[in-house]
Amino acid sequence: MTAPHADRDTHLPPKRPVLRVVFAAALAIAFLGFTTLGVWQVQRLAWKRDLVARVDARIHAVPVPAPTRDAWAGIDADNSEYLHVRVVGRFLDVPTTRTQAVTALGGGWWLLSPLQLDGGEIVLVNRGFVPTGETAAGPPTGRVQVTGLLRLDEPGGGFLRSNAPGEDRWHSRDVQAIAEARGLPADRVAPYFIDAGRDSAAQGWPRGGMTVVSFRDHHLQYALTWFALALLTLVAGAWLFVSERRLRHHRRQLSTGTDHGDTPRRR
């Protein structure tokens, strides 16, 4: 009479409460992690849109005097990048620095020349773009006013390409390295450069006003991805809960059937 009971028990699914608890805890942790990342990306999206709005306002604002030496330490991307500025001074008689560039006009060079301001500070000015093979005019002589966009230093070089000051080969507008290569006093060189605006009266090269202002903004896509993954963990958790209930119900049915089967019948 006990053999049938043993046979039925062998068909019951094994109990694994510890494994189920670990799996549920992992889902809960994953849900919290994905949700946190999604919220963070939403916050980054708000920050990026605010930054774009501020930069757009700076670009189209009336030019203001460029930051002087006492304000250099406080310059950063949030408060100064793409600020519409003006400077007055004289270009120094040093070789123009050519940095590799790719623009809407094709490949070529940015031309950077140091401008000494009336107060003694020195600011590198990106006078504009010249295509490869074209001849560019030198910087103007005498006292000049330059208006343009304030840009932050680009140290090191470009993607997978390092600057080589000893060979006068430049892949980025590395202010400190260029100043050192040209023998400029480091304490007087501004930690930024200026992209000069387009001079409609100028003929030939270089051509100013070719700054491209763009920001990568994939935060919404990232946020949706993280929230979708959080939703999937909820679905997995719901599946685990439903499967557990079905398993328990199945166990009860098998147990009830076994008990009835073991009860001897009277004839």
Rank of each mutant, 00 (worst) to 15 (best):
R188Y: 00
G142D: 11
I122K: 04
Q253P: 08
E121Y: 00
T103N: 06
L160V: 15
V130N: 04
G119A: 03
R143F: 02
I122C: 05
A6W: 06
V175G: 04
G158L: 07
A71T: 14
V212T: 13
P13R: 01
T211D: 02
H219I: 09
A186M: 05
A61Q: 14
V130Q: 03
R49N: 15
A30M: 13
G38F: 01
M1W: 10
T225H: 12
W47D: 14
G166H: 05
A3W: 03
G158K: 06
R267I: 12
A53S: 14
P264S: 00
V242H: 03
D9W: 02
G156D: 04
Q203H: 08
I29Q: 05
A104P: 06
M1E: 09
G142K: 14
V146D: 03
L105F: 11
A101Y: 00
A202L: 14
S214E: 09
R49S: 08
A61L: 13
G257Q: 14
R246A: 04
L184F: 05
L19I: 11
G197S: 06
W72D: 03
F241M: 10
I122N: 05
R245N: 05
G33K: 01
G209F: 00
A73E: 14
S172P: 15
I75M: 15
L112Q: 07
D262V: 14
G209A: 01
D187W: 03
R86C: 00
S200R: 13
T36L: 12
L45W: 02
Q203P: 09
T97C: 07
G183M: 00
D262M: 15
T233P: 12
R267H: 11
Q203D: 10
H260I: 11
R161M: 15
